[in-house]
Simulated scan of single mutants.
Amino acid sequence: MKRSNRLAWMGAIALAVIVLLSLFAAPNNTKISTGSTYNRASDGYGAWYAFMQQQGISIKRWQKPFSDIQPDNNPVTFLQVSGDPRQTTLDSQEREWVEKGNTLVILGAGARVTEAEFSTMQKSPQGDIKIDTRRRYKKANSKQVNLGDRFGAIVWEQNYKKGKVIFSTTPYLAANAYQDYLSNFKYLANLVTEKSNTVFVDEYIHGYKDADVRKKESEADLSSFFAKTPVFLILLQVGILLLVLIWAQNRRFGKPVALDTPVVDNSEAYIQALAGVLQKADTTDFVVEMVGKQEQLQLQKALGLGQVPLEREALINFWIQKTGASAAELDAVLKLQSRKQPISERELLSWLGKWRTIRLIRNS
């Protein structure tokens, strides 16, 4: 295969891997669109928003933070559809806003799963309401429950001074999936228009923001985009590209470097081979004789006694005179090497250890 064709194939493989990684490793933001009036899927509220406009009801999309709501003299009804269950308690900012006489409607409030059937039809003044959830809120009293059954409340309300909060355990109360159940649309419409307030639908929590908000939050500039981009995914993709390029070039960055041939130490190789043969032959007496002679000659050289092997007693006397150390270790090794009989491997190791001790003494 030609080099150009190989590069093309490698590039195609790298591109396919990056695409797959982007699909499977990219953050999952599908839930953020749940409940959005811009969403035409089954979990969106586009059909209900169009229904409200057809009914001539004043309803607006709110694409700013909750803190930016500044109602005039007229109170406001604020609808939030949460993709993830949220707590039924309000933070200080929400509570203060509701207490001024505003209404907060939260679809998708957290509640326990009960033994209720998943799909039920609930009675209401607007007709039968289709509910698809087993979640029920059991702490609400009968006066607070707007929609529910013996398992608990599905829709209930709590008063906060001049205002109130309406909760629903299901975020799909009037989603696009219920277009065949007009009573669901009417029921939610009645909830948000009960006090003839100005109705706002929160789109900010679904990622939709006005231009001034995006500018304020610095989401329009490139630096913020990269700051919020998953760094790990980018590094992984770059790493795969580099590996493919290295593979295609069949070399690292730069010219190939020849490997140095290791230099063989003939003496060390000979000693190791000889040691292996002696071990298999179990000739420890030969090892003791040869090593003992060399160790004795090295000791005599260190004591200034020449290279002619001395008798055991004479060497021991010189050892005591020169070092002042005990002659027990030296006497033991000299006796063992003069025995000239095979010894066990454990005895051989002990004998070598004693010679090592003698070397340490003479060098100290």
Rank of each mutant, 00 (worst) to 15 (best):
M1A: 14
K2D: 15
K2H: 10
R3K: 14
R6A: 12
G11S: 15
I13W: 02
V17P: 12
I18Y: 00
I18A: 15
L20D: 05
F24I: 15
A25S: 13
N28D: 15
N29K: 10
Y45N: 12
A47G: 09
W48C: 09
F51N: 10
Q54L: 12
Q54P: 07
Q55E: 14
R61D: 04
D68M: 09
I69L: 14
V81S: 03
G83T: 02
G83H: 01
T89K: 05
E94H: 06
E94Q: 15
R95S: 10
E96I: 04
E96V: 08
W97D: 00
L104R: 01
V105P: 04
V105G: 06
A111D: 02
A111E: 01
E115Q: 13
E115V: 09
A116G: 08
A116E: 08
A116M: 09
A116C: 08
E117G: 11
S119A: 13
M121P: 02
S124L: 07
K130E: 11
K130N: 10
I131K: 05
Y137A: 12
K138M: 11
N141A: 06
N141K: 12
K143P: 06
Q158I: 07
G163C: 06
I166E: 04
F167C: 06
T169V: 14
T170K: 00
P171M: 11
L173S: 01
F185D: 01
K195N: 12
T198K: 01
D202R: 01
Y204C: 00
Y208K: 06
V213Q: 07
L222W: 15
F225V: 10
P230Y: 00
L241H: 05
L242R: 01
L245P: 01
I246M: 09
K255F: 04
V257K: 13
V257T: 11
L259I: 13
L259K: 14
P262G: 04
P262T: 05
V263K: 15
V263M: 09
E268W: 05
Y270N: 14
A275L: 11
G276A: 10
Q279M: 10
T284A: 11
V291P: 09
K293C: 00
E295F: 07
G306E: 04
P309M: 03
A314V: 13
F318Q: 14
W319T: 07
K322C: 08
G324L: 07
A325N: 13
A332Y: 10
Q341N: 11
L348A: 09
L349Y: 03
S350I: 08
T357Q: 12
R359D: 08
L360R: 15
S364Q: 13
